[in-house]
């Protein structure tokens, strides 16, 4: 059984998200800042008439901030019925990964903070960290997020 993953870049690392969980990929468009929102929420944006919150994955992963480039993209995912945009450095490709090439995450690194890591995939000698973006936020954070768009 093969799975398809959308590969994106943050800093120099490649991450993979199961394609089924991805709604779409859009270019960075105007983001409206919102008051009283969690630090990692960039703001809200209008996605074809639907208002979605935008989360900066760099902030979420405690990576240094960078300037937006022409490769910067927003990955739109559904999280518990709420659509949300994740800002990433670039989306490079969609790959098919045979199940055999996916390793479960090492128990060494699996903690509450890294629960969203679903595995490590080997693609052409590259190591890709597979994420479940719907788990990137904690329950409380998701409620926050719902409050943002409500």
């Amino acid at each position: 059984m093969e799975n398809q993953f959308v590969i994106f870049k943050l800093e120099e690392e490649h991450y993979g998200v199961n394609i089924v969980t991805v709604e779409s990929i859009i270019k960075v468009q105007e983001i409206t800042k919102m008051p009283h929102v969690p630090d990692f929420v960039e703001g809200i944006t209008n996605l074809r008439g639907v208002v979605i919150p935008v989360i900066d994955l760099r902030k979420r992963f405690s990576l240094p901030q960078t300037v937006e480039t022409k490769d910067t993209r927003i990955i739109v995912v559904e999280m518990n019925g709420v659509m949300a945009g994740m800002v990433v450095d670039a989306v490079t490709e969609v790959v098919r990964v045979p199940e055999d090439n996916i390793e479960p995450p090492s128990p060494m690194v699996s903690s509450v903070d890294t629960a969203f890591i679903t595995g490590i995939a080997k693609v052409d000698k590259r190591l890709i960290i597979l994420l479940d973006l719907s788990k990137v936020l904690t329950g409380a954070e998701k409620e926050h997020l719902q409050a943002v768009v409500a």
Binding site: V22, E23, I25, K70, D71, V91, E93
Partner: peptide, 20 residues
């Protein structure tokens, strides 16, 4: 090209989602 790429990605996503 970048737009096309984006479209292609989205198409792939759409296709995968639809497939599933």
């Amino acid at each position: 090209a970048s737009q096309t790429n984006l479209l292609a990605l989205n198409a792939a996503i759409e296709a995968a989602r639809t497939g599933a």
